[in-house]
Design a protein around this nucleic acid. Structure first.
Lengths: 329, 329
DNA sequence: AGCAATTTCTGGCAATTTTCAACAAGACGT
DNA sequence: ACGTCTTGTTGAAAATTGCCAGAAATTGCT
């Protein structure tokens, strides 16, 4: 395919033989560049291509994950703010995103941090329960491809009718896809019309089976939502303003992984809970590592309540939010 | 400590507040640079320091292993030459170093490749038997620091009196040190003066214990030596020319992990074997992953014999050697 | 406190990398 | 066989990074 047709027409082709490399050019270029420290020119010369092509090759290698640049996230854990927040918030682990980064949306930046941490923490037989949210979605997109066939990713809440770009199904399947893990979606609506329907549904073998799986979760991953102003809960069609108001009247300030709570961490319930298909909170609390990811000024009170309720074990947030939380906790 | 003394003498200090970052500046810089893709200028601005300092910070981060750049070695395994050699050589795995790299010595370059592969393959409870050789020594130096407290690194051959810079002790302890693993040296001479001394020594509790440990090896790591011309065996004072000649007369062409063999893979023995303190070959062959590392034109026949003798399971070599081996196998 | 040694930081220049717009080659439909 | 679209390549310009030698700050010592 790449045979020498130097004797075809004009013989003014490259005089040095282009060096018979294996098929995987990006890999070879990457090795010579990153491991042996050659300049792009030198590689270009050896491969018989232009500098620019070497650059493209290297870019491809980075994109395809042939070369990976990793930052040791345990360092982020050791940073002073993380330690303070970890102690004040009663957490097992806490990671704080440096302030002053790129202009990208905060949830994308926190999501990326979460991705790096998750990658590093995943063990082979993990069962990961995934809730939903914008930040969780960002995380899923920022995950670098990996091969973890022993891992199971399971959906924690039921699905929604409305299609929006960070639905429970999408979050779950995205993460599973990146990880090359088993993906177990919950094939049931997130909200049903009346309590007896919930009871019936929960008895369905397939659903029951799913909740049995969820009980084996080793990790869960979820975001937090605040309740005041326009929220994701309404936008996504999960709830109506009216229902939300009922929770707020009872003092709820936040919502995470399916439960509402007030700033003191008391779980708030209304009739809605009886129609909401979600992992029971007793089971949820038993999961060893419950990772909450999210940040932003609006969410501070919500996160405070979430921490008091001890829904999360591990918190991933940004510097400003962390500082505010440290002040009020 | 870093308080504002802007009102001390001259007020021409930095007007923008230097941004209150955590203590670990290199880490923050690294995150912003590698994860968020900011330019060094932008980071300098946000941190209130000069570009050059950001550069230094990043360098420090790289040096200290806060950021790591890795190449997925499994790709090298999939390269066409590797696959061919793996099949022809009856190997479990085979890795081939790209040709045309830096001008560094071949054993250093192969050692680096070996280091990357070893890092990636090490599991938590491994017991790694380490023989000696220049390439193994290079590997040990190229290993990046890791924390594997569950790993044991054990010396496969006895030590030598002469001190040279790639002795069994050094290879073993170097590797263990990099890995933060347990280091078990064999506190016995590599060669004793007569067979009965070997018998006696092997009965010593400490030695016996060591060989029991070796029997539990999950991996071994060793190089190959050719026998013609000036060899490491003589240089290191392990053997005399005369002894070597005895092996060569019987057809031996190579030496690896303590055994001599001919090109067909038959193990060659002389009286020397009865004075050589080394892991018994029956035990050696039982180790699940036997990693041989080495390359170079001189070694081709030796590697051929080594492969035929099935001493190795996994081979790490360079492109030229791999091509030659494919031709003759 | 005063001075010298040492460390850390900086400005600017050189080298390297990245981008870009134009161009060549192959694939495809007509 | 012809244009057209896609894909990949290139040289040169623009941007970014790497480096060094001198400046500032810090430290250690008397």
């Amino acid at each position: 395919m790449r045979a020498n047709r130097a004797d075809d027409k004009v013989a003014k082709r490259k005089p040095p033989p282009p060096m018979q490399f294996g098929a995987d050019q990006p890999l070879w270029a990457a090795w010579l560049y990153y491991e042996e420290g050659l300049k792009q020119d030198e590689i270009a010369e050896r491969l018989g291509i232009s500098r620019a092509s070497v650059f493209n090759l290297l870019q491809k290698a980075r994109d395809e994950g042939i070369v990976t640049i990793t930052i040791d996230p345990t360092r982020l854990e050791r940073a002073d703010l993380s330690v303070e927040l970890k102690e004040k918030g009663g957490l097992l682990e806490c990671y704080v995103l440096p302030a002053g980064g790129s202009a990208a949306a905060l949830y994308d930046r926190i999501g990326r941090l979460g991705a790096r941490i998750l990658e590093q923490k995943i063990e082979n037989d993990d069962v990961i329960g995934v809730a939903w949210g914008r930040t969780v979605m960002s995380l899923s997109k920022a995950l670098s491809p990996a091969n973890k066939p022993g891992v199971t990713v399971a959906q924690v809440t039921g699905s929604s009718i409305a299609t929006y770009d960070f639905s429970p199904e999408l979050c779950t399947s995205n993460i599973a896809a990146r990880l090359n893990a088993r993906c177990v979606n919950l094939h049931a609506p997130g909200v049903v019309s009346n309590p007896s329907m919930k009871t019936l549904l929960m008895q369905e073998p397939i659903i029951e089976q799913h909740f049995t799986l969820l009980r084996q979760c080793t990790k869960t991953l979820f975001g937090v939502t605040h309740l005041s102003g326009p929220t994701l809960l309404e936008d996504s069609g999960v709830m109506t303003e009216e229902l939300l108001l009922q929770y707020q009247k009872k003092g709820a300030v936040g919502f995470a992984s399916g439960y509402f709570f007030d700033p003191d961490g008391t779980i708030i319930r209304t009739g809605f809970d009886d129609r909401h298909i979600v992992m029971p909170i007793e089971d949820f609390i038993n999961v060893p590592r419950r990772i909450c990811i999210g940040g932003g000024a609006e969410k501070i009170t919500a996160i405070q309540g979430m921490l008091k309720a001890a829904l999360a074990n591990v918190l991933i947030t940004d510097q400003d939010t962390a500082r505010s939380l440290c002040r009020i906790l």
